[in-house]
Design a protein around this nucleic acid. Structure first.
Length: 301
DNA sequence: TTCCAGGCTTAAC
DNA sequence: GTTAAGCATGGA
């Protein structure tokens, strides 16, 4: 089966190849499967698995095509939700022209534009997944964060085996209702991470926290404050979620050690810049801090 | 062994 | 409000 599901027009400054290069950064990524031409991802729609492949065929390729590899064509509402997910995943409805105009003149960003032309912030549209990914990534190296995510997903998520490969979807918050901190610690989460994951699962599963609610707040800063009320979620995590899930282009995780290392490397500093120095530096990226960050991260890999 | 990694909390000033 | 110390785990 390889049915056309839908096609989307893509904006200027979008290159699937650049996005795939980013998505391919870790062989331990378990929630999607990128290759040279496209990416595959498992969705669970009303309990039914749906395996999708995204490509950009044609020459010149100007449309993003979603093909159905496994499952049955969803009904209109579910299909619309899937389209929305793809748009948010690749940040397709954002006009990047202003960012490119600014970044082309920027000493630090210009070389990164050239090397990553058409890269967009790869989003994590699902709030629970985004929060968990951020929590798992606190204070550990990325390889280990991917390992934690893989173990959590394999244990509590759903999967589909198709043509010899196992695809996974991230667990929904509800499955953690009876899960204990000890069970998560067995997956190598620290007690703090385990407690925070369960706390967030309870809030989202209980209807006390949602992406829509955060987006409905008057300002991104308000969403950040809401997330900061949760024990185990600090400035970095909430800024990260603003950037990857709430799609706030102005979010700037100044405390991010990856960002610090990228700036150190690109400027030739003999030490990492302090968060305060990064905030000062980011003034010239105003309005596009999250995109600057995402591109700066690319200097590390 | 030491140091670092896409931090957070608590206690002390 | 700001800073320091403790935490906890794997990888280089």
């Amino acid at each position: 089966m390889n049915d056309l599901l839908f096609e989307l027009a893509v904006p200027a400054h979008f290159e699937l190849a650049a996005c795939l290069e980013y998505m391919n950064r870790s062989p331990l990524e378990c929630l999607f499967r990128p290759d040279a031409e496209g990416v595959e991802r498992l969705f669970m729609i009303e309990g039914e698995p749906l395996l999708i492949r995204l490509t950009m065929p044609g020459d010149p390729p100007r449309r993003l095509r979603a093909s159905l590899l496994y499952g049955s064509v969803p009904e209109d509402a579910a299909l619309a939700g899937l389209v929305r997910y793809i748009v948010e995943w690749f940040d397709l409805d954002r006009d990047l022209a202003p960012f490119y105009r600014m970044a082309r003149e920027d000493e630090l960003l210009a070389p990164l534009l050239a090397a990553n032309d058409g890269l967009r912030i790869i989003g994590i549209p699902d709030l629970f997944e985004a929060l968990c990914w951020a929590i798992l990534g606190q204070q550990v190296n990325l390889a280990f964060a991917y390992k934690l995510k893989q173990q959590l997903t394999a244990r509590y998520g759903q999967s589909l085996e198709w043509q010899g490969y196992t695809y996974y979807s991230f667990p929904v918050p509800e499955v953690f209702r009876e899960v204990t901190v000890e069970e998560l610690c067995a997956l190598q989460l620290t007690r703090n991470k385990a407690r925070t994951v369960l706390e967030v699962a309870g809030l989202i599963g209980g209807g006390l926290l949602s992406r829509d609610e955060l987006l409905a707040l008057p300002a991104p800063e308000a969403a950040e404050q809401r997330l900061l009320q949760i024990r185990g979620i600090g400035p970095w995590t909430s800024q990260y979620v603003r950037m990857r899930c709430l799609r706030d282009a102005t979010s700037f995780p100044a405390g991010d050690v990856g960002l610090q290392n990228a700036v150190k490397f690109l400027t030739g500093m003999d030490r990492k810049p302090t968060p305060a120095e990064l905030v000062d530096l980011s003034a010239r990226w105003r309005g596009w801090e999250a995109y600057a960050t995402f591109y700066l991260w690319r200097a590390l890999y």
